[in-house]
Design a protein around this nucleic acid. Structure first.
Lengths: 339, 339
DNA sequence: GTCTGGCACTCGTCGTCCGTGAGTGCCAAT
DNA sequence: ATTGGCACTCACGGACGACGAGTGCCAGAC
């Protein structure tokens, strides 16, 4: 009963603060949200909420703003994702429909997400852990240098430029190529790596060094999770909307967004296919103290091959953002399913 | 003589303004640049420079700042690129040396350029106009769908996902594949496109439709200059350094940087292998009125395959930026030369 | 002719100083 | 438990004025 109202007050504070960007006072609150009680009552509730650490005042005679804990409570218990309207769903579908390419899908997803949420969007490329080896190409550029091209079932392509320890005749190269192809083609990359690892042992003595180098490069290219770790960022212009809304400047944000490694860690927290929210100082990223991340895994079927999400100021529209992230993840997943 | 001094004054104004970001007055000028004359004399020169439209005062009783025309004069006639120090050269070389991949080279170049100039760096992927076809892979994903992979001598890879008009047996596919390979492998993409175009005519009646579709996709992938039009942007965090240094906010800048098409046009102005500078409102980009672009073409040998450069506020260190752009372009070119 | 020192004037910046009003906490009354 | 009343706090914003960097102009010197 009274507990209920206190939470209603918290919800109202969060909603108003997110909408206006300004500390919200007791009077404005009762006016905008028919709470059916007087400002004085609300003030009492606010005092309690403040004791619990859910809200705070920036300075003595100002309204309250939610703390990180307040947002957490709001997200976990006081709201549900507002479903997308039919029009929005259609817009999403038609926007993503036109993509013909993995790159294109990722590209469009980022734009879409940034546009829907008015935040910075991040999309990770689908991992290739379950991919199989479609083809391996070994091309001699000059006698001592070869180009390795690894084509995976997912459509991803890895390339490696290689210096060989000894010069190689066109014939030997053809031999190496055919052995490698026989060993790896069609296999999952995890299996292929093993099969390839055994190859040098069978090789003729003089080719053994060459084999080792090539196999090592291929195995590295396969297991190298760098390839999984590509992310695309979009909507950075939305950062400017907050002006000095962030603590200090937007510089640390821009820097963090260029550090794709950091972004991957952020997304990595959200591998499940349900939407995850990190708020403010939760997690070990001091430089992102005043930001929240809304992310989710996505991928064909139910398995999450990669993650996508948005990052914005803690004072963001959580229900809307969560809904948008979930919706985009679902559509992207179905598209990946088809191909 | 007196003309000389007037230009020396302009140079001093530009240098000081770039260094301090503040309008520079006659007194400060004589103190910092042993001009050998009194402030009053400098004031007279300034009045003349202002008449010529090379400098301006933001408001009465403030110092002068250079106009776009002033910067132009400075760049064209009053300065030379300051050569990189040996240490810088070594740093550039070692930074780019580690790259093993075209992607990697581009990536590293962007970072390097941003770091050297403290500006936003833009690097265009080398165009593949003179590339030859290394390999074409055609993979059946399901009876009605195939994946085309086009591998070029530059190391670039293009992929296309294709719906076939009729289902295709594994045998027919093998036939198509071998014909396509025979026609295109090793040829320049311009020649390959022609050779491929003739293929469907020779084909068996039942495969003709399939051929047309596949060939069309390949030709499109080759000539599609989308592939040339990839750019990578880095160092956006440097935008924050200027704070509100730009007119208004940095939002339009961030937006422009996400519009890769605009960036390509900017870089496109600089296809020669000498460094080009666009200052302020020069050119048709209102949204970049308060920025300058320093760019140059680069590529193996003397031919410019693509461009790279930086974009920053008009009040930038032109000699340093130009030198950095030129140096990076040269090193990247030599690296592309080797591979 | 060119340069210089002097001088009056302009005007943006910065610190200070209230007045205003939104918002609070507390208390007595219902 | 809720409410109306009341005194108090304090950030914000406008007004005011001192300060000083910088200018243009002029008369005199080299």
């Amino acid at each position: 009963m009274l507990e209920d109202r206190r939470l209603a007050v918290l919800r109202a504070i969060v909603e108003d603060y997110v909408a206006t960007q300004e500390p919200v006072g007791s009077k404005a609150l009762v006016e905008r949200h028919r709470l059916g009680v007087s400002p004085a009552t609300v003030r009492n509730d606010m005092a309690l909420l403040e004791e619990e650490g859910l809200i705070a005042q920036p300075h003595t005679s100002a309204g309250r703003i939610p703390t990180d804990a307040g947002y957490r409570m709001f997200v976990d218990r006081l709201t549900t994702m507002k479903p997308m309207s039919a029009a929005e769903k259609r817009a999403i579908a038609s926007f993503l429909e036109g993509a013909h390419d993995l790159d294109d899908v990722v590209q469009r997803s980022v734009r879409l997400l940034a546009q829907l949420t008015h935040q910075v969007a991040i999309v990770q490329y689908p991992t290739l852990a379950r991919s199989t080896v479609r083809h391996i190409e070994i091309v001699a550029l000059s006698p001592g240098r070869v180009l390795l091209v690894l084509i995976l079932s997912s459509g991803r392509v890895e390339q490696r430029l290689l210096e060989l320890p000894v010069e190689l005749s066109e014939d030997s190269l053809a031999d190496v190529r055919s052995r490698v192809l026989r060993a790896a083609t069609g296999a999952r990359i995890s299996d292929a790596a093993v099969a390839l690892g055994a190859l040098p042992d069978d090789a003729a003595q003089e080719d053994r060094a060459t084999f080792s180098v090539i196999v090592a490069a291929l195995v590295e290219a396969m297991s190298d999770h760098k390839s999984d770790e590509r992310v695309v960022v979009g909507g950075t212009a939305n950062l400017a909307r907050f002006g000095e809304g962030f603590d200090g400047s937007i510089r640390p944000m821009l820097e963090a967004l260029e550090e794709h490694v950091v972004l991957l860690k952020l997304l990595g927290e959200a591998t499940s296919s349900s939407v995850t929210v990190r708020i403010g100082r939760e997690g070990p990223y001091q430089e992102l103290a005043s930001t929240s991340v809304v992310a989710t895994g996505y991928g064909p079927g139910d398995e999450a091959l990669a993650s996508l999400g948005i990052v914005g100021p803690t004072r963001m529209d959580y229900p809307g953002s969560m809904a948008a992230v979930r919706a985009v993840a679902r559509y992207v997943s179905t598209i990946l399913d088809e191909s």
